[in-house]
Write a protein that binds this DNA or RNA. Structure first.
Length: 425
RNA sequence: GGAGAGGUAGCGAAGAUGGCCGUAACGCGCCCGACUCGAAAUCGGGUUACCGGUUAGUCCCGGUACGUGGGUUCGAAUCCCACCCUCUCCGCCA
């Protein structure tokens, strides 16, 4: 949610910033609604002030044993007017709220301007894509021939975009999640959390999935609950409507959860393999930051995600999302892309965003400055660290051998009973 | 699912016959000051958030908020209705 005060003060500036995202927003609508809201408020508050004063007079009259009926009669008219105006105000407020909740965040000044993913600059690359003396296979071929990934049975049990992991693949999932969480909690300072996997409407609104992106979510029938598409949702909303102490910041949380996504509108994209599933496991990092330090913390968090890839010896690069390619709530985003030899390209494996105070306003996340004074909105950050399925894809494709076996990265072996490679039959 | 109790400031709580009770008694915490070499103890003072008007201003003025949403009333923490949450007991259940 954008700052109402900023929208009032500089609507043209807000419109310019939003236009950089490529989805122009009619800020005049807001100006009109907000003007009407404030005009109504002034009138209503005046009448309510009168009513409060007269009610006190009524009380005084009654205590003194005097007749208060002329006063009461007069208030009947005032009350009818208040009722009428209150209804008008409710309608305007609902409209204004709907407007402001559907408007995306403004890009930070440091975000490169561009139209789409082709304009995302590469910030840096780590590791050399491996060269194979044979044609590298894609991960689903490897996973199926090594009898770890069973897409057929996933489809039988649930449908397309579901998989069954068997034996070493199931174990590898568990190993990766544990490895990620161990590094984050032991070395990166995150507190591990276990949260509800389904949340209410308010929580989904706090991070920005609702009201605009309901189609991307799985919703429970007969319950106003939604399956989380990422642990960002419960973790960011953890302190909703609280006022934290400045000295508590930054708060850093990590959680491993299944994530559920409808993938509406992605028909035909990544239909094979693990890249785009309705259900996948992910370790997510969330930071609640002091507003003055959030951009430093974005760099730190992006480093935490990269560190995992480096330990797993997976070549990757970092791109900065341009203004036209950023998500709804983000003020600035880095994507980390891992090299996939089978696909012969870099694919997104982590997205690290600073949402500024956008989610904090929606979820009412505030802190009290150290010296006392007014509570301020904090800044929220989230980053994948990392999605388990896509990491498994990268391990399979980068570690593959000509005979169809796959080497397990050194860092993961303690989590795999020392297993050095997945061997074909 | 059934029965009961409860939800008021950072915390514990008072208020429930509708009006002088909402920056809200009382206690704790926190902040400032006095005392002290310093501290503790003690004493004095302060300490909700949001919206609007206004402003040089965190001043001032008005409005709103007692779990949430409605209703009754000139006036609701207080009366009525619905819902949510917490606790206790019973039932069911991994």
């Amino acid at each position: 949610m954008l700052d109402r005060k900023l929208l009032q003060r500089d609507p043209a500036g807000v419109a310019r910033a939003l236009a950089l995202r490529g989805s122009p927003v009619d800020v005049v609508e807001f100006t009109v609604l907000d003007g009407r809201r404030r005009a109504l408020l002034v009138e209503i508050e005046g009448l309510k002030s009168e009513r409060n004063a007269v009610s006190a007079e009524v009380a005084a009259h009654k205590r003194a044993g005097k007749d208060a009926s002329p006063l009461i009669e007069r208030m009947g008219i005032v009350n009818a007017r208040i009722r009428e105006l209150d209804q008008a105000l409710d309608a305007v407020q609902a409209e204004e709220r709907a407007w402001i909740l559907s408007v995306p965040n403004m890009p930070h000044a440091s975000v490169p301007v561009g139209r789409d993913e082709r304009d995302n600059p590469v910030i840096r690359a780590w590791g050399e894509p491996p060269r194979f003396p044979f044609a590298p296979k894609e991960h689903w071929e490897l996973g199926e021939s090594l009898k770890g990934l069973d897409f057929g049975r996933g489809a039988k049990l649930a449908g397309s975009r579901f998989v069954v992991c068997r034996h070493w693949a199931a174990r590898l999932e568990r190993a990766l999640a544990n490895f990620f969480l161990d590094v984050h909690t032991r070395e990166h300072g995150y507190t591990e959390m276990l949260t509800p996997l389904m949340v209410n409407r308010e929580t989904m609104t706090g991070t920005g999935q609702l009201p605009k992106f309901a189609d991307d979510l799985f919703k429970l029938e007969n319950w106003d609950y939604f399956l989380i598409p990422t642990a960002e949702v419960p973790l960011t909303n953890l302190h909703a409507a609280e006022i934290l102490e400045e000295k508590e910041l930054p708060l850093a949380y990590a959680a491993q959860t299944p994530c559920f996504r409808s993938e509406a509108g992605s028909y035909g994209k990544d239909t094979k393999g693990l890249i785009r599933m309705h259900q996948f496991t992910k370790v997510e990092m969330v930071r609640l930051s002091h507003p003055e330090r959030s951009y430093e913390e974005l760099e730190i968090m992006r480093g935490h995600a990269e560190a995992l890839l480096q330990r797993l010896e997976l070549p990757h690069r970092v791109v900065a999302l341009c203004t036209g390619d950023m998500g709804f709530a983000a003020a600035k985003t880095y994507d980390i892309e891992v090299w996939l030899p089978g696909q012969n390209c870099y694919r997104e494996i982590s997205s690290c965003s600073n949402c500024g105070d956008f989610q904090a306003r929606r979820a009412n996340l505030r802190f009290r400055p150290a010296g006392g004074g007014k509570p301020e909105y904090l800044h929220t950050l989230n980053g994948s660290g990392l999605p388990v399925g896509r990491t498994l894809v990268a391990i399979l494709e980068n570690g593959q051998r000509e005979d169809g076996g796959v080497a397990i990265p050194e860092a993961l072996r303690p989590y795999m009973d020392g297993l050095k490679a997945i061997e074909p039959d």
